[in-house]
Design a protein around this nucleic acid. Structure first.
Lengths: 145, 145
DNA sequence: GCCATTTCCTTAACATGTTAATTGTTGCGA
DNA sequence: TCGCAACAATTAACATGTTAAGGAAATGGC
């Protein structure tokens, strides 16, 4: 017998896109005044949380493909939010570090960002919110299930 | 007191990205041989499910922004997978319809696509799979919560 | 009928996603 | 040490995401 595709309304890829759309709306709204994008924000967040690291690690932790990171790092460098330095031991490698100006971008908006997160927790309820994160984690190819 | 941002590993936007990455991996793999992209596949899926419709409705149902749809429709038309016709009653409007060649793209891969879906249900378990879709639906800005 | 507004669609400009090719370095085994 | 595979990063090419502006057609109030 022939297998049937799920209706698009119950399609996992589409549901993921739409949910992401909903989640990003207030975040993009918050970022609009800064002139930085959602991905640039993510890179700064990771650098702020973990400190200086090489580009490959940064790409992984930011969930960005390497070519994207190359461009984003260049943009952030031009804006003065990160610095790039070559590793003397291994000249292929590059270290990226957040600057004070970059850190300020994060700090000035940490409260508002936390409020946005709080809003989503309120929408779903704390328990469902955690359940959702767990279920999403199971689909993450990087997190050995 | 100062609010704290969640660690990036428990960030909802990042979790959504990574989950989507995991879900799309086998799908992109399936589509690689067709020369059509994931979004083009989505448009064909919607047209196949609902039949001919105007561009605005198609964009909504495909979860695509209008400018993206304009380009994608042009690409699919050039490939012979859809036809575009103006509405005589309202010359602003445009109807888009899947062709036999376009339908064949879907039909030839429906089984494999269904297998992929089955794989994710198996990963999560049927119950958690449905729970996930419900939770994602709650974040969908288009679905009045 | 006239005009401002709205609606549907297109185009533009820039950033990112995605895959592949390329460059410069390192490390390793013959 | 030579040669080559592996690695880090960049660049290129094309498609999409996102916002804004623009054009053409319909609509509604007057």
């Amino acid at each position: 017998m022939t297998k049937t595709l799920p209706t698009t309304s119950r399609s996992l890829p589409i549901a993921l896109i739409r949910a992401r759309e909903g989640v990003m709306l207030p975040i993009r709204d918050m970022l609009s005044e800064t002139g930085i994008t959602e991905q640039q924000w993510r890179v700064l967040r990771v650098l702020s949380e973990f400190g200086q690291m090489d580009a490959k690690t940064l790409a992984d932790r930011s969930s960005l493909l390497f070519p994207s990171l190359t461009r984003i790092a260049a943009t952030l460098r031009d804006k003065g939010f990160v610095t790039q330095t070559r590793d003397d031991k291994d000249k292929r490698r590059q270290f990226i570090k957040i600057t004070a100006a970059g850190q300020k971008i994060i700090d000035d908006r940490a409260d508002r960002a936390a409020e946005i997160v709080k809003g989503f927790k309120a929408t779903l309820g704390d328990e469902k919110y955690e359940t959702l994160l767990d279920l999403l984690g199971m689909l993450d190819p990087g997190a050995q299930k």
